[in-house]
Design a protein around this nucleic acid. Structure first.
Lengths: 133, 133
DNA sequence: ATACTTTTTAGAATAATTCTAAATTGAGAA
DNA sequence: TTCTCAATTTAGAATTATTCTAAAAAGTAT
């Protein structure tokens, strides 16, 4: 599942992120066409496994930046570590508490109705549904 | 909104929690009939404000214990600090990102349909809906 | 009161994340 | 190219939230 370096450059360019070496490397690890829910440690392990030499701080910098740019979605489940979701489509999650692992809820099965009126001057940034198992 | 010490004792008793001095004090701060979303720091501040002398570790111990006993509901929003909700009824939340504050969504407005079938041998522990604003 | 268990606590330890400041890299101009 | 300057990367220190430890205090049942 290696990724075309041209596509990575395009992806970063479209999101106004300078395509530096480690950014391209981390993007390559993450955007291989498979949906993933990764923690910072997962990314560090992935990088090691593929001989991408980088630092903990850079992984944080890069993931935070990707999330801010809309290239990743940050998901809060328990306190403790953060997860980043490479699937940007509108979807929700199962959270397996015993394994501390997220999984996409298949399809667009879930429908939410009866959204209340929002406090004045506010607008929805996201609606997150987590089903804990 | 002071709370009847008898009621606190009853509440703790019903949840099989020994009614020690600090547990009663913290329960008294939390269960005054108003729904609250508190962080650990909020509880420490509340305790100080009412001259309840206790320690950080005891606040953690007590809140964790109350949550385990079903007297509080723990809510994860961002990484970072945990929130504890005194409203145990089935309900969902607005999260004001800029203020790092939770608010109950009024009424039982929200309906979720199309819950997918669960992975084998699993059952739902909870369904959490957070609307980020 | 006595003995025994459970709680409480201060402070140390751990974990996740951010900050700092120095070294490196990237991108454009000469 | 090579020079310059801003942006990025990095190791390690600092911060924040939380848990652990082990000794002192409080609770409970004799």
């Amino acid at each position: 599942m290696s990724v075309d370096s041209k596509q990575i450059n395009k992806l970063l360019g479209e999101h106004k992120i300078r395509p530096t070496k480690i950014r391209k490397a981390i993007a390559g690890l993450l955007f291989d066409g498979r949906d993933k829910h990764v923690s910072v440690d997962d990314v560090i392990a992935l990088a090691r496994a593929r001989d991408v030499k980088t630092s903990v701080a850079s992984v944080y910098n890069t993931l935070n930046q990707f999330a801010a740019a809309g290239l990743l979605r940050r998901i809060a489940v328990d306190g403790g570590r953060a997860f980043f979701d490479t699937n940007l489509s509108d979807h929700h999650h199962f959270y397996f508490e015993d394994e501390e692992r997220l999984e996409d809820i298949p399809g667009n099965a879930i429908e939410i109705s009866g959204l209340p009126k929002l406090p004045k001057g506010r607008q929805i940034k996201s609606v997150d549904v987590t089903i804990r198992l």
